[in-house]
């Protein structure tokens, strides 16, 4: 094993190469060995390449939209909505059973079901769009989602509820991110049904108390999916 090959195998260089994709890692390490770079210089060169790559990704509007137009604001809104759903559920459990014979649905049950469905749909579509348009900048979107979560969990002061009720939106959102990373786009018919169903579910939620107007903003990822599926259908070159 040559000295240069040993330098390329040093922990510093191996750690830095984690920033690159596997195929590129091979070629770059080979070039650095061939050019006789030491471990420190090789690590710096690799980090510089990774930084340039990341900077290049941010020339596009997609990562900006995913990180600052979706992840950060939607996390705040979805945490608020998760709390509202949990409080509605708690009120429903504490309500006295209705009088009379036979089972009648308690008041507010229908609205709660609508809200649970809406929470799952908003979270999934938001996650899908973030995963779909972020891809290699997903770590920034995830960090911008993580920060408000930590901030709100730290300041949660409702004794009767677990602070983790704020994170009800997280499982469907993570599921959506994984789908968004794997699937280029969903079918137009499915996107239209999803967007219409979400909009319809928003109407009863709007009629109840609470700051619902900002939550309408959570429906835009569903309409974004409709627009992208429609464009892909019109222009098959985009469908890849």
């Amino acid at each position: 094993m040559t000295a240069n090959s040993t330098a390329a195998n040093s922990w510093l260089v191996q750690l830095a190469t984690r920033l690159l994709e596997p195929a590129e890692r091979e070629a770059v390490l080979g070039d650095l060995i061939e050019s006789g770079a030491g471990a420190r210089q090789a690590a710096l060169e690799i980090i510089s390449l990774a930084v340039r790559r990341q900077a290049g990704l941010w020339k596009n509007w997609h990562p900006w939209l995913a990180a600052f137009g979706l992840s950060f604001p939607c996390t705040l809104l979805l945490m608020g909505f998760s709390l509202s759903v949990t409080q509605s559920y708690e009120r429903l459990l504490g309500a006295p059973p209705p009088h009379g014979s036979g089972w009648t649905p308690p008041p507010g049950l229908l609205l709660l079901i609508c809200n649970v469905l809406l929470l799952a749909a908003w979270s999934w579509t938001g996650g899908f769009v973030v995963g779909n348009i972020s891809r290699r900048t997903l770590w920034v979107s995830a960090a911008l989602s993580f920060m408000p979560c930590v901030f709100c969990l730290e300041r949660f002061r409702i004794e009767s509820l677990s602070r983790f009720c704020l994170l009800l939106f997280l499982p469907p959102a993570i599921w959506g991110v994984f789908h968004g990373l794997r699937i280029a786009r969903i079918r137009l018919s499915a996107a239209i049904i999803l967007a219409l169903a979400m909009t319809a579910l928003t109407v009863p939620a709007w009629s109840s108390n609470g700051p619902w107007i900002p939550n309408w903003a959570l429906s835009w990822p569903a309409w974004y999916l409709v627009a992208t599926s429609w464009r892909a259908r019109r222009d098959p070159a985009l469908a890849g």
Binding site: M1, T2, N4, S5, A8, N9, A23, E24, E26, A27, L29, G30, D31, I33, E34
Partner: peptide, 15 residues
């Protein structure tokens, strides 16, 4: 495209 690996490159492929 990815080319062949050579011993002077520590057995790593060329781009």
């Amino acid at each position: 495209w990815m080319g062949e690996a050579t011993p002077q490159r520590g057995g790593r492929a060329k781009r």
